[in-house]
């Protein structure tokens, strides 16, 4: 149920993100969600795509520096306070979050958030016990 996130190193200069996206488009790779974390000179684009293996291979051959990371996609109720509640659950279980971002599409009346935990296995165990629905890759890819 781990989701594979694709991370790409990008310099902050015009056209770099477009170039990376072009590589993906040229290779028929679908982007399900994308977020960018940046400092002044560079950033890291984090993407969920339908074929991360192929994406990494093609990006590398176009001289991009990229990697794959395991993350969890968790369903949250789309009501005020649900994220806060989730965060409280994580801290109660001593789960450290390295970063998180929202998934663009909703699943019915529920929102999906992507979390990068320091210890993904421990996080999975705790979340299932707490009754959270961890979304599987196949659901997200819409297959």
């Amino acid at each position: 149920m781990n989701l594979t996130q694709l991370s790409i190193f990008l310099e902050n200069k015009p056209g770099r993100l477009q170039n990376a996206l072009k590589v993906l488009a040229d290779n028929n790779i679908n982007i399900l969600t994308l977020t960018i974390a940046e400092v002044s000179d560079f950033g890291v684009a984090r993407l969920i795509v339908n074929d991360p293996e192929k994406a990494v291979k093609e990006l590398r051959s176009s001289n991009f520096i990229c990697s794959k990371t395991d993350v969890l996609a968790i369903e949250l109720e789309d009501v005020p306070g649900s994220l806060l509640k989730a965060l409280e659950t994580f801290s109660k279980n001593s789960l450290n979050i390295e970063y998180m971002y929202a998934f663009t599409e909703k699943r019915g009346d529920r929102a999906v958030m992507i979390f990068k935990f320091e210890d993904i296995e421990q996080a999975k165990k705790a979340l299932l016990k707490e009754g959270y629905n961890v979304v599987k890759r196949i659901d997200l890819a819409g297959e």
Binding site: S7, A37, E38, V44, I65, S67, T69, Y99
Partner: peptide, 10 residues
């Protein structure tokens, strides 16, 4: 940057 030093964490 190379593959070895790259990280998904800023």
């Amino acid at each position: 940057v190379n593959e070895k030093v790259f990280s998904d964490k800023l």
